[in-house]
């Protein structure tokens, strides 16, 4: 954690500089008759962000913050495994939305999580993976009239059937 603290502060400082530079695409000073330029607000806020990062770094160098004295790792083996399995699962879930529709992706993600990460029975995992997207479909599309992504064209017959029920 000790080095993580300074690396994070450094990365955030660089990001703040990037934001300052990007804000400066628009005027950052006072324009007579028009008030502060469009870039002024984000520019000066990013400058304060940079100063805050510098303050964190100074505390780290002086060893006054708790993290600057911590020997704990950022994440242990379990932490990295969790981030890979759960975080990876979420990335897979979102990536699948464009392919097999929001509802299809929900079903696959729930099955993956419940059966393989949660170690629940097949019956419960499959039951919830099917019931949840169906319930969501009727709530969002039927009651709230909010259309979710339907994925690639091969899902059309399923959605044609479902839309006929609600419309």
């Amino acid at each position: 954690m000790r080095y993580g603290e300074i690396v994070t502060a450094g990365v955030l400082a660089l990001f703040s500089i990037y934001l300052m530079w990007k804000s400066a695409d628009l005027p950052i000073g006072y324009i007579e008759g028009k008030g502060p330029g469009g870039g002024a607000w984000p520019f000066w806020l990013s400058a304060i962000m940079l100063l805050s990062c510098i303050a964190v770094m100074i505390k780290w160098v002086r060893g006054t913050s708790p993290l600057s004295q911590s020997d704990e790792p950022f994440l242990d083996g379990h932490g990295w495994r969790m981030l890979g399995l759960v975080g990876g699962g979420l990335v897979g879930f979102v990536a699948l939305i464009a392919v097999i529709s929001m509802y299809g992706a929900i079903a696959v993600f729930l099955l993956y999580y419940l059966r393989f990460l949660g170690r629940h029975s097949w019956a419960l995992s499959i039951g919830l993976s099917i019931a949840t997207p169906i319930l969501f479909f009727f709530f969002f599309e039927g009651a709230m009239r909010i259309t979710m992504p339907t994925g690639l064209p091969f899902t059309d017959p399923v959605f044609d059937f479902l839309y006929e029920i609600i419309y």
């Binding site: 879930f93 929001m102 999580y113 419940l114 990460l117 629940h120 949840t132 969002f140 709230m144 992504p149």
Partner: peptide, 27 residues
């Protein structure tokens, strides 16, 4: 059980996020 609640919250977050914004970029 938390191993059921957790994926449900993840799903609600993604679906709720899309319902509010209607944009995959936001997801």
């Amino acid at each position: 059980p938390f191993s059921i609640l957790a994926p449900m919250i993840f799903v609600l977050s993604i679906v709720g996020g899309y319902a509010a914004m209607n944009d995959m970029f936001d997801i």
